[in-house]
Design a protein around this nucleic acid. Sequence first.
DNA 1: GCCGTTTTCGGCCCGACTGTTTTCAGTCG
Length: 575
Amino acid sequence: MPSNEEISRALETIVTLMEIRGDEHYRVLAYQRAAESVAAAGSPVSSLDDPKELPHVGDTTAEVIRNLVADEMPEVLDELMAEVPKGLVEVTRLPGVGPRTAGRLWKELDATSVEEVANLEASQISSLKGFGKKSAEKIVASAEKYNSEERRMLLHTATALGDRLLDFVRNHPATEKADLAGSLRRGKETIGDLDIVAASSDAKSLAADFAEAEFVTEVVAHGETKVSVVVVGSDGGVDVDLRIVAPDAYGSLLHHFTGSQAHNIVLRERAVKMDINISEYGLAKADEPERNYIPAETENEIYEKLGLAYIPPELREDSGELEAAEKGELPDLVEVRDIRGDLHVHTNYSDGKGTIESMAEAAIELGYEYLVFCDHSQSLRVANGLSPKKLVEKNEAVRKADEKYGGIRLLCGSEVDILKDGALDYEDSLLADLDFVVASIHTSFQIGEKAMTDRMLRAINHPHVRTIAHPTGRVLNRREPYEVDVSRLIKEAAATNTALELNSYPDRLDLSVPYVREAIKAGVKITIDTDAHDESALSFMKFGVTQAQRAWAGKGSVINCLPREEFEEYLKSGK
DNA sequence: GCCGTTTTCGGCCCGACTGTTTTCAGTCG
């Protein structure tokens, strides 16, 4: 079954090919919105009775989605592929090159791939109507250095870089206020580029100084209120946009550049029906000939004027948040301060760097009320998995430490491997002696969807397993999730009172947002754990919490938001 | 192609910047 992401990507391909072909704008837009709708869907589209249940999906796009789910080639895509060379999709990814340009390079110069564009002479392009020397050279140059590997930054990398740039902007004398916006503010798991917004009554000088800052390697565009630059990231260049408005319109600007674009569009369409136009400068009455924007100083004013409750950035994805805001049904989102403990951390007994004591002290520092030590189990030799004897020894050390530290409850756990056949890596008698068991997969990833699903269902049904760690095994930018029917895992977890983990490690963030949302809807409890292998990694909790917020989670859905007594009750009562 | 508190037909969010242009198309977010 194709994932929502795969279906959405196929629809995006249709969009790009249509644009190159020169299809009618609003037809293309309809496919674009269908693609976004699938990407934002709260549960797998493949399990939907009718794709038309999704917003912006009508008869035609529903049929295309049905084809994709059934692994059949949709007619429209078949047609497009026969007509438009596929290599052009990549050509449109060149900076400054869109579908129009790609279409002309193909039709007028016979260039159908990035490589063929790179092999063109600039003079060939500049001989076309509407192209000059400058744009011709830019196109060839960007084709020459094009790197097909699309790399998006992990959330913690983007946060670190963004904070550095934000410091520069905030420390500028002309800056009154500034914030990071865009997908970073919405807390997406990976970030493509950075958006910074600022309020200043001297936009010109701020824009100029930003463009000349030492971290800038290239100025892509530089106007009076907007600067686009490339800065040095830890892994190549990162595109950064800075937008500046007068202080009284700051809320409008922040909202505009926080997005998502899909959220802004549905919000503005809703506003138009109320005869209000919304832009980054404010709100205007639609019936006036000149748009006379009344600025909004805060984001809240915008939602208020539209009769909506304030929508937190993490929910702004056009996935039902407007309806919920209208009805007053937005969730009361879980916050980092609601987290009372970490249920999955490692020590130097297996592959961690910290000791029981150092990890406990770091957890006390964070104000936690409990901490569960889950080192790896015996068969995971690469991670120094504990033999049964060693586990018993470690449990004793944990219990001793628990007596030593009064302020925090230290508990014995294990991250026990789910073996290839679904059996666990320790005898039941040993597991029974633990306070909390986390089960997970680290080997035999490629056994196929059915075998993997059965294997994990067996673990979910095990009486001692309380949560399944990093349930899909993905590693962002490095490893795809293994094939498994997550929806079935969710159903079984609900039926057996087993939790599912939202692993906070920035390159895991596993489960992903749509599945967490599906799990919560099904009544499954989530454990937000850091999987920390040293003291500093305990701070990754904030990334897991952000992801939980994106999945509409309230603290009631999160096991480790339970106060200590209730958590101990939960442990005692079993599954 | 999608959608409906004027509408089942006729609309469809909004603006900055660039390059090539004498008024705008294309790209981007």
